[in-house]
Design a protein around this nucleic acid. Sequence first.
RNA 1: GGAGGAGUGGCCGAGCGGCUGAUGGCGCUGGUCUUGAAAACCAGUAUACCGUCUAACGGUAUCGGGGGUUCAAAUCCUCCCUCCUCCGCCA
Length: 426
Amino acid sequence: MLDPKLVRNNYKALEEALKARGMDVTLAKAFVAADEEWRKIQSEAEDLRSKQNKLSEEVAVRKREKQNADDLFAQLKQISARVKELQEKAKEAEEKVKSVAMVLPNIPHVSVPVGIDSRDNLEVRKWGEPKQFGFKPKTHDEIGVALGILNFEQGAKVSGARFVNLVGMGAKLERALINFMLDVHTKEHGYTEVMPPALVSGASMTGTGQLPKFEEELYKCKDDDLYLIPTAEVCVTNLHREEILPGDMLPIKYVAYTPCFRREAGSYGKDVKGLIRLHQFNKVEMVKFTEPENSYQELEALTNNAEAILKKLGLPYRVVALCTGDLGFGSAKTYDIEVWFPSEGRYREISSCSNFESFQARRAEIRFKKDASSKPEFVHTLNGSGLAIGRTFAAILENYQNEDGTVRVPDVLKPYLDNLDKITAN
RNA sequence: GGAGGAGUGGCCGAGCGGCUGAUGGCGCUGGUCUUGAAAACCAGUAUACCGUCUAACGGUAUCGGGGGUUCAAAUCCUCCCUCCUCCGCCA
């Protein structure tokens, strides 16, 4: 959610932001109109309420002095009815403002490149050289299925399309990646590990911006107002919902491993094979709560923390800054990290690191006080994958494949895999 | 799931229909005193929204949340949520 004051004082910025994102500006107009309407009704209601309070006090005084107040009662009865009416109208107006405000996207940071879609994203840096294979590199699902460590048929049997069963070394590699990433982030990057619920309330989903706009992306338990998380961003960011944090606690840095669940509505036909786009996948996620003046510095650090994993695994990657048209709904700035996939001869997203500034903090009411005596301010929230486990799994199979179909184990993972050198058929 | 009990400001804890945003204590901040500290004393100490020259200020709301009764609700009624105790079930 945006700061309503900022929108009132600087309406142009909102219009420009919507245009930059390729969205219609009628939304901005609707917001301003609703906001004005609400303020008008609200102040009218408050004035009348004020009058009512004053007369009520007089009643109290007379009652204490054992005097009659019947004349006041007659007046108050009328006022009371009108107050009720006005308050109802004000509430309706407020709800309208809120419902519009909730679907307004964040305003992109000035450093975000302007563009229409992913083709306009800006490559920021590259690391590692894609390996030259003396043979035609296979896709990760070909390799995994052949080794017997990935079983998509079983996934389909148990749950349906876009599910997988990991078998033997497959399950173990997945687990190794989770542990490896958590270890690096906790021991080397100073994050606190948490393991929050994966089933969250509608309030939490609203807090981080998944609701109300993206309900069709979510798995919902409709009897219980509970949703399966599409990312740990939701449960971890909401850990401090409706709190005022002491300034010296910041920055707070959490890392969490969780499964993630996405309906992938509207992605029919996309990445139907392999581990790239499943309904359920594992992810290690980093989340930060920072003071506003540090958040961009912290975004760089967060991105570097995610990159560190790829460096240690020896997987070539590049970092791109998303352009305005490709930016997520709540994000003010996002870096995608893309890892090299030899079978496709291109880089593909494996992590997304974003600064939401106060967008989520405002929705979720996450504030902090610089000092005990200072006024509460909204924190800035950031998050980034560090990394998506399934896609890392896939990248390892492809980048470390041998011509005979076996897969070399990256050195840093060996301690997690009984010092195994390579993965062979189950 | 069943039966009880409880939710008040940063914390503890009064109030149970009308000068109560809310007594008191603790904590915190500032001051007096002191060589310094402690103690003592004095003062201040919630959040949000709206209005105004983004100012001192004014208004409104908030006693777990919603709804209701009433001229008037922290106080009465009702539904919901959370926590605690006991029972049942369960990885």
